[in-house]
Design a protein around this nucleic acid. Structure first.
Lengths: 201, 201
DNA sequence: TAAAAATCTTAATGTAGTTAAAGTTTTTTG
DNA sequence: CAAAAAACTTTAACTACATTAAGATTTTTA
């Protein structure tokens, strides 16, 4: 393992240690289940119809996880980036075709793990299993919060919250993509942005 | 433990065994962390501002988990019922005040567990920990699917899906409550229902 | 670096869903 | 079982956001 790779796994470890404490040997054990994957921008990590074969920890980069409909419209679930996980967990776990497209928006570096490996790791590492449970719990809390936001807030309010919560990626995303996350048309989003500008002048 | 109580824990065990296999002694161990709670309809299991002190497995009954806003409007996350868990996991885990109201819509029977007990149980029972992780994973998948539905579907389509997915509780809920789950006004929901009736005549 | 493709901008017009208000029916409670 | 409360129904005016269309600007690719 070279210098660069070590850096990726150190980053991964730092993330794990935000949730559970682990020693050097435990981390070596965990790391052995993952491979480094580099992927250039403007490629698809996953296409609708395919089975998601890997879950991935994002070392660096930016993705868009979305669901297309018949008419070509796109609905965005999230924009996985540094220190997130990316993949379609439903397709991954059930080994069934996904309805999602996961696009790479920037050159990215991932630590990938297959279903077989993850099952093994979860069975063999109590700390990793706790880490992974905590992640799932948090993911579910975050998703529920977004459901409430969609029900309770206007597009403008949702946009304000998005800017707060995702300031790190706000400027790396086109208007069109943010609109598809908020659930409004690109035209309406543009109008909102214009209103915002006039207000501040 | 009396006959009736045994029945509740058998039901709980059946649910656990849908996800992981456990033996009699393991189940006895798990059960020892829970208490039976009976709660009458039209009471609040949790009020906004309070800390959620228990997570609960629903043996029988029906609840509404919702978030109120300043103006008195109510947004519904879900309707926990038989074989679901009910509680505000965010408030429970972080021991911070909840923004949710959880109302009992029918006389209900719960198996409750405190935060301290759950932490202990998760640390002491590998099978339970796996069960709980699987639950969280599924909760997160389900929540993400709902987000996509809210983005992609009209109120009418969302209602059709609701009827499919929740046929068991559909007729135990008022129009007003279903409307607050779908994210439409009671008036508009009523209009939709009328349209539906005329169509079938 | 030209040309093709994608994104952004602007405005007009259309629509799903809201609001308010009042009446009716059903359910709950003393 | 009467009365109060809650839920349902109906209508009309209104608003947040969608759609379409077309030109301007930026980004990508050959």
């Amino acid at each position: 393992m070279n210098k660069e790779s070590e850096k990726y796994f150190r980053k991964f470890r730092a993330h794990i240690e935000k949730h559970v404490k682990i020693g050097d040997s435990e981390m070596a054990h965990i790391s052995s289940y993952f491979s480094i994957k580099r992927i250039g921008r403007k490629t698809d990590l996953l296409e609708p119809g395919n089975i998601c074969r890997f879950e991935n920890f994002v070392v660096s980069g930016l993705f868009q996880s979305s669901v297309p409909d018949e008419s070509g419209k796109v609905y965005t679930l999230n924009f996985p980036h540094e220190n997130w996980w990316v993949g379609d967990f439903k397709s991954f776990t059930s080994r069934t075709p996904s309805i999602m497209r996961i696009e790479t928006l920037e050159d990215s570096i991932l630590l990938e793990i297959s279903k077989t490996s993850l099952d093994e790791l979860l069975a063999n590492s109590q700390p990793f299993s706790n880490y992974f449970r905590t992640l799932s719990e948090n993911a579910s809390i975050a998703a529920n919060e977004r459901i409430i936001q969609q029900l309770a807030q206007s597009a403008e309010q949702r946009y304000a919250l998005f800017c707060q919560k995702y300031s790190v990626i706000r400027d790396r995303l086109s208007q069109k993509r943010i609109a598809s996350f908020l659930g409004v048309s690109p035209e309406y989003f543009n109008q909102m942005e214009r209103r915002k500008k006039y207000e501040t002048l």
